[in-house]
Design a protein around this nucleic acid. Structure first.
Lengths: 341, 341
DNA sequence: ATCCGTTTCCACATCGTTTTGCGTGCATGC
DNA sequence: GCATGCACGCAAAACGATGTGGAAACGGAT
């Protein structure tokens, strides 16, 4: 008695052929109710699980998709991942989150990812090298880009309305009487920095005011960047009444430095961020910011992928979805609840 | 001219047999320098990548391992993931981070994970059902547990020295003259809560003092839990001079509530947390806590898995590794740098 | 009884690897 | 010259699934 394994074992104990079992599993062809029952019984009895390798070998599909992020310790990305799972799990796909460790690590990891033959890849990349872009394109893997267009033929992308968010921030600040408003961006060459500054400008224009370019400094998207940014701004002048930061981490760093200089937030100067990471609500005073709908970004990206994977979307035009953002006003731009006299 | 694909195509253009190409790839048997060169040239020319499905079908290995976490938005887990990657990537393994979404979601995801036939699984689970434990055990997949013993034959686990950490916290507080010390735990039935309280008790005992059980309340491991915990403690008495919290989130919530009651931290009451998540340094005043070496936990877990996967560790006794923790003193237990007068 | 259309199942080829067991050709020892 | 040993490559058999072309069984119509 040779010990069969896999689908063959199931076929044997059910007293049917291998192909019939496969049919029952895939529902590809009609199977009579009687044999279907026999097969299912055998499957349950043996605790059978199809071998994904064998399956993908034939079907050329893995039923799993990858999310490739530059830094999983950035609290923004876990939320994106959760959003993708919301959509993918019910559709029978498994989401693997892969951490490149840094922007530069992306290329190194990309090779591993492509080797694994995921059905689809979602990635958030700031600088994708031409070589990597080519590898992605010729791999034939479905790709959806997060945050910006990745420049691959036929790959959709989803981003949030950065400019609109900063316009709302600007209006909020101008509406509360602030006029000497500085802006601390991330890396100067980065798309987000430029878009976000653009939104602020728009708010000024809308109020019939001029935005002074000398109110802008660029550093990096980190807490340290925020500290440096404040230092740079205060070298130019010292009468700022609001500081707009390109993301929450910068804002938190800026608050550190402002406090160190003996300034009170928001009485002397208001501070705003972007993203609405958890920490924004935790700092003291809590940070006025704009909600960057990470989870919704994830959901949308997953839906785009699923549509493409369904196949009939192969020739559909490239999709570009922009999600709207929401202003979240907290204590860093309004007077905090009086607590120490 | 039939269009071969995969290894057969490589074999053809290199003018060798399929098996020879495989040998070159795996280095399983010696191959002459000349043919090795020919094969490598062909591989490069065709941009060949082995099909992981076919490979795992034969070799029964996937070269990828999974990290299953209850909630990827908890900042602790991304660090664990990064630590695992540190070790796994150089070893040629791909790490997939899988988010169960909640403790209860673990079971649902576990099925998907086992189906995927990962070579190894690392999981951090508080309550694993017996059914799931059985599924894991009989799947034959290598398992390493994080944080606690998972009770599966032959599965190693790694945890951090919670009790030691809380002993250090207790000594620190007692050493600065605090005596009326309250403890806010997470869920009462959870192992961590009990272990951590035990560490605090130990500090009292070491100083020849008695710890009063009436100083303990249990809530949940969240920020809301911290608020509730403070409320509960202050119903018992109002002269606390320190509050020890079972993790940083609780501590941050506790600070919210203390502040709302008009108390000053640390002048009126000191607060401590556990884990040293980023937010601990961001809150104001910054939080004294204990570093829970998440990244090192990840590294260790990965090493344990690799050892088992190497095969010769099959019969080795179960390993139980405890990592030491480090006290991080910040402003919430010392007087902050005078900044307003 | 014959024929035909459905339904239901099966045999078999196939996917791309790994792996074992042999067959070469060549130098070596006698 | 002839057995012996080595170093290299190759053929072929798995691995576990999918899916197509057909064969068998079954009714109903003629």
């Amino acid at each position: 008695m040779t010990q069969k394994s896999g689908i063959a074992a199931v076929a044997e104990t059910a007293g049917v052929s291998v192909s019939t079992v496969s049919q029952v599993l895939s529902g590809n062809r009609p199977v009579s109710e009687a044999t279907r029952a026999k097969v299912n019984a055998a499957i349950a009895e043996l605790g059978y699980t199809p071998h994904p390798g064998a399956r993908s070998l034939r079907s050329r599909r893995t039923e799993s998709i990858a999310l490739l992020v530059p830094d999983i310790t950035n609290p923004f990305y876990p939320l994106v991942a959760v959003g993708m799972q919301d959509v993918l799990l019910p559709a029978g796909y498994l989401l693997s989150i892969l951490d490149a460790g840094s922007q530069s690590g992306t290329g190194r990891l990309l090779g591993h990812v492509l080797e694994r033959r995921f059905d689809g890849i979602a990635l958030h990349i700031d600088g994708l090298s031409d070589a990597d872009r080519a590898r992605l394109a010729e791999s034939g893997t479905r790709v959806v880009a997060l945050g910006r267009d990745i420049g691959i033929e036929g790959s959709d992308y989803v981003e949030s309305d950065d400019a609109g968010g900063f316009a709302k921030l600007g209006e909020h600040l101008l509406g509360t009487g602030r006029r000497r408003i500085g802006f601390i961006g991330g890396e100067e060459e980065s798309d987000p920095s430029r878009l976000r500054l653009g939104g602020l400008r728009q708010a000024f224009a809308g109020a019939g005011l001029d935005y002074d370019d000398a109110s802008t400094v660029f550093t990096s998207f980190t807490r340290d960047g925020g500290r440096d940014g404040v230092a740079a701004l205060y070298e130019r002048r010292t009468d700022w009444d609001a500081i707009v930061c390109a993301n929450d981490l910068i804002a938190i760093g800026a608050m550190d430095e402002l406090r160190r200089r003996g300034l009170s937030i928001p009485d002397d100067v208001a501070v705003t961020g972007y993203d609405d990471i958890d920490a924004a609500a935790l700092v003291h005073p809590s940070l006025t910011t704009v909600e960057n709908p990470a989870r919704e970004i994830g959901r949308t990206a997953a839906r785009l992928l699923l549509t493409r994977l369904a196949g009939d979307g192969d020739d559909a035009p490239t999709q570009h979805i922009t999600l709207s953002t929401r202003l979240v006003v907290r204590d860093s731009t309004t007077s905090p609840i009086p607590q120490e006299r």
